[in-house]
């Protein structure tokens, strides 16, 4: 099976005045379709930078990133943006919903960007909200929702356009334990039941233990890549 994501020799350096910080050092990573991959590591290890670079949100200094066989950094900004709209979904730690849009309007946003007719888009958004348990919150604005509800709207938005891959950056970072558990149940369920590919950044070991594959980072390098199946095999 060809990989959904293939990153080779990815390097990213941040420059602030005279100071240079290398956030990613010649990093290689492959993600197969249907995988749920956790990216873990201590603070400052480069987890979020990795997510940003592999999703094309940020530029890289060296290396190559292919998503669905297309080299992200060989594309123009406009092409990459369009590619993101068609192939990727995002879940952020701070939810990042559009405050002036209702829950349904937020969810239908990716569909609008890919040309789905408004009635179809609205129907799918409502259906998606129902799936994440928010059927009664369709017309609520973000500031009228709790943190957990907001994150579920974000997940609905990330999934509604049926993207090839969903990037989740600390999706439970702003939630209490109970709410975090619910969100993780939702994500793992989607992966398990629908084969949704998800790359999830977290620093929470409890969450890491629930993931089938975990890559660990330190100082911008990938230091381990462990599959739960391997661990179970080891015993």
């Amino acid at each position: 099976m060809p990989p959904l994501l293939a990153a080779t020799g990815v390097r990213k350096t941040y420059r602030t005045g005279a100071v240079e910080v290398t956030a990613l050092r010649d990093l290689d990573l492959t993600v197969l379709p249907g995988e749920l991959v956790g990216v873990m590591g201590p603070s400052g290890s480069g987890k979020t930078t990795l997510l940003n670079c592999l999703s094309g949100l940020d530029d890289i200094d060296a290396g190559r990133v292919e998503v669905e066989g297309r080299d992200l950094f060989a594309m123009s900004d406009a092409e990459r943006t369009e590619h993101r709209a068609r192939s990727m979904g995002f879940v952020f730690q701070a939810f990042n919903l559009i405050p002036v849009f209702s829950a349904a309007e937020n969810v239908e946003l990716p569909l609008m960007l890919t040309g789905t007719p408004p009635p179809t888009a609205r129907a799918r958004a409502v259906e998606m909200l129902a799936r994440v348990g928010l059927a009664d919150r369709v017309d609520h604005r973000p500031n009228e929702l709790s943190g957990g509800e907001q994150q579920r709207v974000t997940i609905a938005r990330a999934l509604v356009a049926r993207p090839a891959i969903v990037w989740a950056d600390e999706p439970t970072g702003n939630l209490d334990t109970g709410m975090a558990g619910q969100v993780m149940d939702l994500l793992t369920g989607l992966n398990r039941d629908e084969g949704q590919t998800i790359v999830l950044v977290t620093h929470d070991e409890a969450i890491g233990r629930r993931l089938p594959r975990v890559v660990r980072m330190r100082d911008g390098r990938l230091v381990s890549d462990t599959r739960r199946a391997d661990l179970e095999a080891v015993g």
């Binding site: 406009a78 943006t81 993101r84 990042n96 559009i98 990716p110 960007l113 938005r157």
Partner: peptide, 15 residues
């Protein structure tokens, strides 16, 4: 700024 970032992440063009 954050909303703009999200929009851009979701596929909204710069223009």
């Amino acid at each position: 700024r954050r909303t703009i970032g999200v929009l851009r992440a979701l596929g909204c063009q710069a223009r």
